[in-house]
Design a protein around this nucleic acid. Structure first.
Lengths: 230, 230
DNA sequence: CGATCGTCAAGAGCAGTGCTCTCGTTTGTG
DNA sequence: CACAAACGAGAGCACTGCTCTTGACGATCG
Protein backbone atom coordinates (compact mmCIF):
# COMPACT_ATOMS: atom_id res chain seq x y z
CA UNK A 1 0.00 0.00 0.00
CA UNK A 2 2.70 2.51 0.86
CA UNK A 3 4.45 1.49 -2.33
CA UNK A 4 3.51 4.50 -4.40
CA UNK A 5 4.03 6.60 -1.33
CA UNK A 6 7.55 5.26 -1.01
CA UNK A 7 8.22 6.25 -4.60
CA UNK A 8 6.69 9.65 -4.02
CA UNK A 9 8.72 10.09 -0.86
CA UNK A 10 11.95 9.15 -2.58
CA UNK A 11 11.12 11.56 -5.33
CA UNK A 12 10.36 14.35 -2.88
CA UNK A 13 13.63 13.72 -1.08
CA UNK A 14 15.45 13.82 -4.40
CA UNK A 15 13.82 17.15 -5.24
CA UNK A 16 14.74 18.71 -1.92
CA UNK A 17 18.30 17.39 -2.17
CA UNK A 18 18.67 18.88 -5.63
CA UNK A 19 17.38 22.20 -4.35
CA UNK A 20 19.66 22.10 -1.33
CA UNK A 21 22.74 21.47 -3.44
CA UNK A 22 21.59 24.07 -5.93
CA UNK A 23 21.25 26.59 -3.11
CA UNK A 24 24.78 25.76 -2.00
CA UNK A 25 26.10 26.34 -5.50
CA UNK A 26 24.11 29.54 -5.73
CA UNK A 27 25.63 30.83 -2.51
CA UNK A 28 29.12 29.85 -3.61
CA UNK A 29 29.22 31.02 -7.18
CA UNK A 30 26.37 33.41 -7.66
CA UNK A 31 23.59 33.54 -10.16
CA UNK A 32 25.01 31.39 -12.93
CA UNK A 33 23.82 28.07 -11.60
CA UNK A 34 25.13 25.03 -13.44
CA UNK A 35 22.85 22.03 -13.66
CA UNK A 36 25.78 19.80 -14.55
CA UNK A 37 27.71 20.91 -11.48
CA UNK A 38 24.71 20.17 -9.27
CA UNK A 39 24.41 16.75 -10.89
CA UNK A 40 28.11 16.09 -10.31
CA UNK A 41 27.77 16.96 -6.64
CA UNK A 42 24.95 14.45 -6.40
CA UNK A 43 26.99 11.75 -8.11
CA UNK A 44 24.56 11.73 -10.98
CA UNK A 45 24.75 12.53 -14.62
CA UNK A 46 23.23 15.79 -15.78
CA UNK A 47 20.38 14.26 -17.73
CA UNK A 48 19.07 12.61 -14.58
CA UNK A 49 18.21 16.02 -13.13
CA UNK A 50 15.67 16.43 -15.90
CA UNK A 51 13.61 13.64 -14.34
CA UNK A 52 12.86 16.07 -11.51
CA UNK A 53 13.01 19.51 -13.09
CA UNK A 54 12.01 19.94 -16.74
CA UNK A 55 14.51 22.76 -17.20
CA UNK A 56 17.03 24.92 -15.42
CA UNK A 57 14.50 27.73 -15.25
CA UNK A 58 12.06 25.49 -13.42
CA UNK A 59 14.71 24.70 -10.84
CA UNK A 60 15.35 28.42 -10.44
CA UNK A 61 11.63 29.02 -10.09
CA UNK A 62 11.44 26.43 -7.33
CA UNK A 63 14.32 28.16 -5.56
CA UNK A 64 12.59 31.52 -5.96
CA UNK A 65 9.37 30.23 -4.46
CA UNK A 66 11.31 28.72 -1.56
CA UNK A 67 13.15 32.02 -1.14
CA UNK A 68 9.98 34.10 -0.97
CA UNK A 69 8.58 31.60 1.46
CA UNK A 70 11.65 31.76 3.71
CA UNK A 71 11.64 35.55 3.57
CA UNK A 72 7.94 35.63 4.36
CA UNK A 73 8.50 33.26 7.28
CA UNK A 74 11.27 35.49 8.59
CA UNK A 75 9.14 38.62 8.31
CA UNK A 76 6.02 37.09 9.86
CA UNK A 77 8.06 35.42 12.57
CA UNK A 78 9.76 38.68 13.50
CA UNK A 79 6.41 40.42 13.69
CA UNK A 80 4.84 37.67 15.76
CA UNK A 81 7.81 37.66 18.15
CA UNK A 82 6.97 41.15 19.38
CA UNK A 83 4.85 40.40 22.42
CA UNK A 84 3.50 43.91 22.83
CA UNK A 85 1.21 43.97 19.81
CA UNK A 86 0.48 47.65 20.39
CA UNK A 87 4.15 48.51 19.87
CA UNK A 88 3.69 49.26 16.20
CA UNK A 89 7.09 50.88 15.83
CA UNK A 90 8.81 47.93 17.43
CA UNK A 91 6.99 45.54 15.12
CA UNK A 92 7.85 47.65 12.07
CA UNK A 93 11.53 47.76 12.95
CA UNK A 94 11.54 44.05 13.78
CA UNK A 95 10.19 43.14 10.35
CA UNK A 96 12.57 45.46 8.50
CA UNK A 97 15.57 44.11 10.37
CA UNK A 98 14.39 40.57 9.75
CA UNK A 99 14.30 41.24 6.02
CA UNK A 100 17.81 42.67 6.14
CA UNK A 101 19.14 39.80 8.22
CA UNK A 102 17.62 37.22 5.89
CA UNK A 103 19.14 39.01 2.92
CA UNK A 104 22.57 39.12 4.55
CA UNK A 105 22.31 35.43 5.39
CA UNK A 106 21.18 34.47 1.87
CA UNK A 107 22.57 37.11 -0.49
CA UNK A 108 22.46 34.96 -3.60
CA UNK A 109 18.85 33.99 -3.03
CA UNK A 110 17.99 37.60 -2.28
CA UNK A 111 19.58 38.59 -5.58
CA UNK A 112 17.49 35.91 -7.25
CA UNK A 113 14.32 37.39 -5.79
CA UNK A 114 14.99 41.10 -6.09
CA UNK A 115 17.89 41.50 -8.50
CA UNK A 116 18.03 41.86 -12.24
CA UNK A 117 15.32 39.65 -13.72
CA UNK A 118 16.24 36.96 -16.21
CA UNK A 119 15.46 38.11 -19.77
CA UNK A 120 12.69 35.81 -20.87
CA UNK A 121 11.59 34.87 -17.40
CA UNK A 122 8.07 35.64 -16.23
CA UNK A 123 7.23 34.91 -12.62
CA UNK A 124 4.51 32.26 -12.34
CA UNK A 125 1.47 32.87 -10.17
CA UNK A 126 2.77 30.69 -7.37
CA UNK A 127 5.71 33.02 -6.80
CA UNK A 128 3.64 36.18 -6.51
CA UNK A 129 1.43 34.82 -3.73
CA UNK A 130 4.49 33.97 -1.66
CA UNK A 131 6.13 37.26 -2.64
CA UNK A 132 3.21 39.22 -1.26
CA UNK A 133 3.58 37.86 2.26
CA UNK A 134 6.41 40.15 3.34
CA UNK A 135 4.83 43.46 2.29
CA UNK A 136 1.54 42.13 3.63
CA UNK A 137 3.17 41.79 7.03
CA UNK A 138 4.14 45.45 6.96
CA UNK A 139 0.67 46.44 5.81
CA UNK A 140 -0.78 44.37 8.62
CA UNK A 141 1.09 46.47 11.17
CA UNK A 142 -0.42 49.62 9.72
CA UNK A 143 -3.85 48.02 9.68
CA UNK A 144 -3.55 47.19 13.37
CA UNK A 145 -2.68 50.81 14.02
CA UNK A 146 -5.64 52.02 12.02
CA UNK A 147 -8.21 49.70 13.56
CA UNK A 148 -7.06 50.52 17.09
CA UNK A 149 -7.22 54.21 16.28
CA UNK A 150 -3.54 54.80 17.00
CA UNK A 151 -2.83 55.50 13.36
CA UNK A 152 -5.37 58.00 12.04
CA UNK A 153 -6.30 58.25 8.39
CA UNK A 154 -4.24 61.19 7.09
CA UNK A 155 -6.67 61.67 4.23
CA UNK A 156 -5.93 61.49 0.53
CA UNK A 157 -3.84 64.65 0.66
CA UNK A 158 -1.90 65.17 -2.56
CA UNK A 159 -2.27 61.59 -3.77
CA UNK A 160 -2.75 61.73 -7.55
CA UNK A 161 -6.00 60.23 -8.72
CA UNK A 162 -4.46 57.40 -10.83
CA UNK A 163 -2.38 56.37 -7.81
CA UNK A 164 -5.51 56.40 -5.66
CA UNK A 165 -7.16 54.12 -8.19
CA UNK A 166 -4.24 51.69 -8.05
CA UNK A 167 -4.34 51.79 -4.26
CA UNK A 168 -8.06 51.14 -4.23
CA UNK A 169 -7.57 48.03 -6.38
CA UNK A 170 -4.74 46.90 -4.14
CA UNK A 171 -6.80 47.49 -1.00
CA UNK A 172 -9.66 45.41 -2.36
CA UNK A 173 -7.25 42.68 -3.47
CA UNK A 174 -5.93 42.51 0.09
CA UNK A 175 -9.51 42.75 1.40
CA UNK A 176 -8.24 45.35 3.78
CA UNK A 177 -10.07 48.35 5.14
CA UNK A 178 -6.88 50.36 5.19
CA UNK A 179 -7.32 53.92 3.84
CA UNK A 180 -5.50 54.64 0.61
CA UNK A 181 -3.13 57.15 2.15
CA UNK A 182 -1.95 54.66 4.76
CA UNK A 183 -1.64 51.97 2.14
CA UNK A 184 0.53 54.35 0.12
CA UNK A 185 2.75 54.93 3.12
CA UNK A 186 3.07 51.23 3.65
CA UNK A 187 4.04 50.65 0.03
CA UNK A 188 6.56 53.46 0.18
CA UNK A 189 7.97 51.98 3.37
CA UNK A 190 8.34 48.58 1.79
CA UNK A 191 10.03 50.09 -1.25
CA UNK A 192 12.45 52.06 0.90
CA UNK A 193 13.23 49.02 3.03
CA UNK A 194 13.84 46.99 -0.10
CA UNK A 195 16.01 49.78 -1.52
CA UNK A 196 18.15 50.02 1.58
CA UNK A 197 18.68 46.27 1.76
CA UNK A 198 19.41 46.00 -1.97
CA UNK A 199 21.86 48.88 -1.78
CA UNK A 200 23.79 47.04 0.88
CA UNK A 201 23.52 43.53 -0.58
CA UNK A 202 24.47 44.64 -4.07
CA UNK A 203 27.58 46.37 -2.74
CA UNK A 204 26.46 49.86 -3.63
CA UNK A 205 27.63 51.35 -0.34
CA UNK A 206 30.94 49.53 -0.22
CA UNK A 207 33.60 51.93 0.95
CA UNK A 208 31.02 54.53 1.91
CA UNK A 209 29.16 53.25 4.94
CA UNK A 210 30.76 50.85 7.35
CA UNK A 211 28.22 51.06 10.18
CA UNK A 212 25.58 49.41 8.06
CA UNK A 213 23.29 47.99 10.67
CA UNK A 214 23.20 51.32 12.53
CA UNK A 215 22.57 53.22 9.33
CA UNK A 216 19.85 50.83 8.28
CA UNK A 217 18.23 51.12 11.68
CA UNK A 218 18.40 54.89 11.48
CA UNK A 219 16.75 54.89 8.07
CA UNK A 220 13.97 52.58 9.17
CA UNK A 221 13.33 54.72 12.26
CA UNK A 222 12.99 57.83 10.17
CA UNK A 223 10.73 55.83 7.89
CA UNK A 224 8.57 54.90 10.85
CA UNK A 225 8.40 58.62 11.71
CA UNK A 226 7.24 59.44 8.22
CA UNK A 227 4.60 56.75 8.27
CA UNK A 228 3.32 58.12 11.54
CA UNK A 229 4.04 55.13 13.78
CA UNK A 230 4.05 56.25 17.41
CA UNK B 1 53.14 61.29 -39.20
CA UNK B 2 49.45 60.55 -38.65
CA UNK B 3 50.23 56.94 -39.26
CA UNK B 4 50.06 55.82 -35.66
CA UNK B 5 47.11 58.12 -35.11
CA UNK B 6 45.24 56.49 -37.94
CA UNK B 7 45.85 53.16 -36.30
CA UNK B 8 44.71 54.50 -32.95
CA UNK B 9 41.61 56.01 -34.51
CA UNK B 10 40.67 52.81 -36.27
CA UNK B 11 41.16 50.98 -33.03
CA UNK B 12 39.00 53.46 -31.11
CA UNK B 13 36.26 53.18 -33.70
CA UNK B 14 36.41 49.42 -33.43
CA UNK B 15 36.09 49.62 -29.66
CA UNK B 16 33.08 51.90 -29.82
CA UNK B 17 31.42 49.72 -32.45
CA UNK B 18 31.90 46.63 -30.33
CA UNK B 19 30.41 48.43 -27.35
CA UNK B 20 27.48 49.69 -29.41
CA UNK B 21 26.62 46.24 -30.68
CA UNK B 22 27.15 44.78 -27.22
CA UNK B 23 24.71 47.34 -25.83
CA UNK B 24 22.20 46.31 -28.47
CA UNK B 25 22.55 42.68 -27.52
CA UNK B 26 22.28 43.60 -23.87
CA UNK B 27 19.04 45.44 -24.49
CA UNK B 28 17.65 42.60 -26.59
CA UNK B 29 18.57 39.57 -24.54
CA UNK B 30 19.49 40.78 -21.09
CA UNK B 31 22.49 40.22 -18.93
CA UNK B 32 23.92 37.10 -20.54
CA UNK B 33 25.96 38.85 -23.17
CA UNK B 34 27.56 36.56 -25.75
CA UNK B 35 30.91 37.63 -27.16
CA UNK B 36 30.48 35.28 -30.10
CA UNK B 37 27.12 36.79 -30.98
CA UNK B 38 28.63 40.27 -30.91
CA UNK B 39 31.46 39.09 -33.13
CA UNK B 40 28.98 37.53 -35.56
CA UNK B 41 27.06 40.79 -35.78
CA UNK B 42 30.30 42.53 -36.66
CA UNK B 43 31.17 40.00 -39.34
CA UNK B 44 34.17 38.94 -37.38
CA UNK B 45 35.27 35.78 -35.68
CA UNK B 46 35.04 35.67 -31.92
CA UNK B 47 38.75 35.60 -31.27
CA UNK B 48 39.15 38.95 -33.00
CA UNK B 49 37.22 40.63 -30.18
CA UNK B 50 40.01 39.72 -27.81
CA UNK B 51 42.30 42.15 -29.63
CA UNK B 52 40.19 44.92 -28.15
CA UNK B 53 38.90 43.50 -24.88
CA UNK B 54 41.04 41.02 -22.99
CA UNK B 55 37.94 39.27 -21.64
CA UNK B 56 34.18 39.38 -21.51
CA UNK B 57 34.34 40.92 -18.06
CA UNK B 58 36.44 43.79 -19.41
CA UNK B 59 33.83 44.49 -22.05
CA UNK B 60 31.16 44.48 -19.37
CA UNK B 61 33.27 46.82 -17.26
CA UNK B 62 33.56 49.22 -20.17
CA UNK B 63 29.78 49.12 -20.59
CA UNK B 64 29.32 49.75 -16.88
CA UNK B 65 31.61 52.77 -16.94
CA UNK B 66 29.75 54.11 -19.97
CA UNK B 67 26.47 53.48 -18.19
CA UNK B 68 27.45 55.36 -15.06
CA UNK B 69 28.71 58.16 -17.26
CA UNK B 70 25.45 58.36 -19.20
CA UNK B 71 23.42 58.25 -16.00
CA UNK B 72 25.61 60.96 -14.48
CA UNK B 73 25.18 63.07 -17.61
CA UNK B 74 21.42 62.67 -17.42
CA UNK B 75 21.32 63.61 -13.75
CA UNK B 76 23.63 66.60 -14.06
CA UNK B 77 21.89 67.75 -17.22
CA UNK B 78 18.48 67.61 -15.57
CA UNK B 79 19.77 69.61 -12.64
CA UNK B 80 21.44 72.19 -14.86
CA UNK B 81 18.30 72.55 -16.95
CA UNK B 82 16.40 74.05 -14.03
CA UNK B 83 16.92 77.77 -14.60
CA UNK B 84 15.74 78.86 -11.17
CA UNK B 85 18.67 77.59 -9.15
CA UNK B 86 16.90 78.50 -5.95
CA UNK B 87 14.08 76.06 -6.75
CA UNK B 88 15.66 73.24 -4.78
CA UNK B 89 12.56 71.07 -4.87
CA UNK B 90 12.28 71.46 -8.62
CA UNK B 91 15.91 70.49 -9.05
CA UNK B 92 15.53 67.49 -6.75
CA UNK B 93 12.49 66.22 -8.63
CA UNK B 94 14.15 66.88 -11.98
CA UNK B 95 17.16 64.76 -11.07
CA UNK B 96 15.06 61.92 -9.66
CA UNK B 97 12.85 61.81 -12.73
CA UNK B 98 15.92 61.94 -14.97
CA UNK B 99 17.31 58.88 -13.21
CA UNK B 100 14.02 57.05 -13.65
CA UNK B 101 13.72 58.03 -17.30
CA UNK B 102 17.26 56.92 -18.05
CA UNK B 103 16.57 53.60 -16.32
CA UNK B 104 13.36 53.09 -18.32
CA UNK B 105 15.20 53.90 -21.54
CA UNK B 106 18.12 51.59 -20.74
CA UNK B 107 16.77 48.88 -18.47
CA UNK B 108 19.45 46.32 -19.26
CA UNK B 109 22.25 48.78 -18.58
CA UNK B 110 20.52 49.90 -15.41
CA UNK B 111 20.38 46.27 -14.30
CA UNK B 112 24.07 46.00 -15.08
CA UNK B 113 24.81 48.98 -12.83
CA UNK B 114 22.43 48.38 -9.95
CA UNK B 115 21.27 44.78 -10.22
CA UNK B 116 22.69 41.59 -8.86
CA UNK B 117 26.46 41.82 -8.98
CA UNK B 118 28.43 39.25 -10.94
CA UNK B 119 29.93 36.66 -8.57
CA UNK B 120 33.66 37.20 -8.85
CA UNK B 121 33.41 40.71 -10.17
CA UNK B 122 34.88 43.63 -8.25
CA UNK B 123 34.23 47.12 -9.53
CA UNK B 124 37.47 48.81 -10.59
CA UNK B 125 38.27 52.29 -9.35
CA UNK B 126 37.31 53.91 -12.65
CA UNK B 127 33.70 52.82 -12.22
CA UNK B 128 33.28 54.24 -8.72
CA UNK B 129 34.31 57.76 -9.69
CA UNK B 130 31.67 57.79 -12.43
CA UNK B 131 29.17 56.10 -10.15
CA UNK B 132 29.52 58.89 -7.60
CA UNK B 133 28.38 61.60 -9.97
CA UNK B 134 24.64 60.98 -9.69
CA UNK B 135 24.41 60.98 -5.90
CA UNK B 136 26.84 63.90 -5.90
CA UNK B 137 24.32 65.86 -7.98
CA UNK B 138 21.67 65.28 -5.34
CA UNK B 139 24.09 66.22 -2.56
CA UNK B 140 24.95 69.36 -4.51
CA UNK B 141 21.32 70.47 -4.38
CA UNK B 142 21.30 70.09 -0.62
CA UNK B 143 24.59 71.94 -0.37
CA UNK B 144 23.15 74.86 -2.34
CA UNK B 145 20.26 74.93 0.09
CA UNK B 146 22.57 74.90 3.07
CA UNK B 147 24.94 77.60 1.84
CA UNK B 148 22.07 79.92 0.93
CA UNK B 149 20.52 79.36 4.31
CA UNK B 150 17.30 77.93 2.90
CA UNK B 151 18.08 74.49 4.29
CA UNK B 152 19.11 74.80 7.94
CA UNK B 153 21.29 72.26 9.70
CA UNK B 154 18.82 70.07 11.61
CA UNK B 155 21.58 69.03 13.99
CA UNK B 156 22.82 65.51 14.63
CA UNK B 157 19.56 64.49 16.29
CA UNK B 158 19.41 60.76 16.83
CA UNK B 159 22.18 59.92 14.36
CA UNK B 160 24.15 57.03 15.85
CA UNK B 161 27.80 57.82 16.44
CA UNK B 162 29.21 55.21 14.02
CA UNK B 163 26.96 56.58 11.29
CA UNK B 164 28.15 60.11 12.09
CA UNK B 165 31.73 58.88 11.70
CA UNK B 166 30.95 57.40 8.29
CA UNK B 167 29.22 60.59 7.27
CA UNK B 168 32.18 62.68 8.40
CA UNK B 169 34.53 60.60 6.26
CA UNK B 170 32.14 60.89 3.33
CA UNK B 171 31.82 64.66 3.80
CA UNK B 172 35.59 65.08 3.78
CA UNK B 173 35.94 62.82 0.75
CA UNK B 174 33.48 65.06 -1.08
CA UNK B 175 35.24 68.13 0.35
CA UNK B 176 31.83 69.44 1.22
CA UNK B 177 30.85 71.58 4.16
CA UNK B 178 27.48 69.89 4.36
CA UNK B 179 26.44 69.00 7.93
CA UNK B 180 26.26 65.33 8.68
CA UNK B 181 22.51 65.31 9.22
CA UNK B 182 21.85 66.84 5.80
CA UNK B 183 24.31 64.44 4.23
CA UNK B 184 22.42 61.59 5.85
CA UNK B 185 19.17 62.89 4.39
CA UNK B 186 20.74 63.12 0.97
CA UNK B 187 22.03 59.55 1.17
CA UNK B 188 18.66 58.31 2.32
CA UNK B 189 17.03 60.20 -0.52
CA UNK B 190 19.37 58.65 -3.06
CA UNK B 191 18.74 55.19 -1.64
CA UNK B 192 14.97 55.66 -1.76
CA UNK B 193 15.14 57.01 -5.32
CA UNK B 194 17.25 54.03 -6.35
CA UNK B 195 14.85 51.69 -4.56
CA UNK B 196 11.81 53.10 -6.29
CA UNK B 197 13.44 52.93 -9.71
CA UNK B 198 14.78 49.43 -9.15
CA UNK B 199 11.40 48.23 -7.91
CA UNK B 200 9.84 49.39 -11.14
CA UNK B 201 12.63 48.30 -13.50
CA UNK B 202 12.95 44.88 -11.94
CA UNK B 203 9.22 44.28 -12.32
CA UNK B 204 8.47 44.15 -8.63
CA UNK B 205 5.34 46.27 -8.94
CA UNK B 206 3.98 44.54 -12.01
CA UNK B 207 0.29 44.05 -11.54
CA UNK B 208 0.20 46.30 -8.50
CA UNK B 209 0.83 49.84 -9.65
CA UNK B 210 -0.06 50.97 -13.12
CA UNK B 211 0.28 54.75 -12.66
CA UNK B 212 3.99 54.39 -12.18
CA UNK B 213 5.18 57.84 -13.10
CA UNK B 214 2.58 59.46 -10.86
CA UNK B 215 3.40 57.15 -8.00
CA UNK B 216 7.13 57.75 -8.43
CA UNK B 217 6.54 61.48 -8.50
CA UNK B 218 4.43 61.25 -5.37
CA UNK B 219 7.12 59.29 -3.56
CA UNK B 220 9.85 61.75 -4.56
CA UNK B 221 7.72 64.68 -3.41
CA UNK B 222 7.20 63.12 -0.02
CA UNK B 223 10.93 62.46 0.03
CA UNK B 224 11.57 66.13 -0.66
CA UNK B 225 9.27 66.95 2.26
CA UNK B 226 11.21 64.66 4.52
CA UNK B 227 14.52 66.16 3.48
CA UNK B 228 13.16 69.59 4.18
CA UNK B 229 13.28 71.05 0.68
CA UNK B 230 11.03 74.12 0.52
C1' DC C 1 63.87 50.22 -52.12
C1' DG C 2 63.69 46.14 -49.39
C1' DA C 3 63.79 43.90 -44.89
C1' DT C 4 61.50 43.84 -40.47
C1' DC C 5 58.44 44.03 -36.92
C1' DG C 6 53.94 44.99 -34.80
C1' DT C 7 49.04 44.64 -35.55
C1' DC C 8 45.23 42.30 -37.10
C1' DA C 9 41.68 38.65 -38.41
C1' DA C 10 40.88 33.84 -39.10
C1' DG C 11 40.62 29.16 -37.79
C1' DA C 12 41.16 25.15 -34.92
C1' DG C 13 40.69 23.48 -30.57
C1' DC C 14 39.64 22.87 -25.35
C1' DA C 15 36.59 22.66 -21.57
C1' DG C 16 32.35 23.81 -20.16
C1' DT C 17 27.07 24.64 -20.62
C1' DG C 18 21.63 23.41 -21.32
C1' DC C 19 19.06 20.09 -23.32
C1' DT C 20 17.36 15.81 -26.08
C1' DC C 21 17.29 11.17 -27.19
C1' DT C 22 18.06 6.32 -26.64
C1' DC C 23 19.07 2.29 -24.06
C1' DG C 24 19.27 -0.98 -20.37
C1' DT C 25 18.00 -1.56 -15.55
C1' DT C 26 15.33 -1.25 -11.53
C1' DT C 27 10.95 -1.31 -9.11
C1' DG C 28 6.32 -1.34 -7.80
C1' DT C 29 1.78 -3.22 -9.39
C1' DG C 30 -1.85 -5.92 -11.91
C1' DC D 1 5.04 -13.78 -12.60
C1' DA D 2 4.72 -10.48 -16.27
C1' DC D 3 4.10 -5.71 -17.46
C1' DA D 4 4.66 -0.92 -17.42
C1' DA D 5 6.25 3.01 -15.41
C1' DA D 6 10.10 5.31 -13.54
C1' DC D 7 14.85 5.81 -13.45
C1' DG D 8 19.98 6.61 -14.35
C1' DA D 9 23.67 6.41 -17.77
C1' DG D 10 25.63 7.76 -21.92
C1' DA D 11 26.11 9.85 -26.41
C1' DG D 12 25.32 13.75 -28.92
C1' DC D 13 23.95 18.68 -30.58
C1' DA D 14 24.56 23.49 -30.50
C1' DC D 15 26.31 26.86 -27.86
C1' DT D 16 29.63 29.51 -24.73
C1' DG D 17 34.44 31.93 -23.14
C1' DC D 18 39.00 31.61 -24.11
C1' DT D 19 43.80 30.17 -26.06
C1' DC D 20 46.95 29.28 -29.55
C1' DT D 21 48.83 29.26 -34.09
C1' DT D 22 48.93 30.85 -38.78
C1' DG D 23 49.04 33.98 -42.42
C1' DA D 24 48.38 38.67 -44.34
C1' DC D 25 48.74 43.60 -44.22
C1' DG D 26 51.08 47.93 -43.44
C1' DA D 27 54.13 51.28 -41.28
C1' DT D 28 58.99 52.00 -40.14
C1' DC D 29 64.01 51.74 -40.37
C1' DG D 30 68.51 50.59 -42.48
Amino acid sequence: MPAANIRARARAEMVTEIKTIARRHLAAEGANLSLRAVARDMGMVSSAIYRYFPSRDDLLTALIVDGYQALGDAAEGADAAVTDRADLRGRWLAVCHAVRRWALAHPAEYALLFGSPVPGYAAPQETTVQAARTPATLIGILLDGFTTGVLPDPGPGDLPDPVRADLAVLRDALSTGLPEALLARGATGWIHCFGAVSFEIFGQLNGVFEAREEYFDHQMRRLADQIGLP
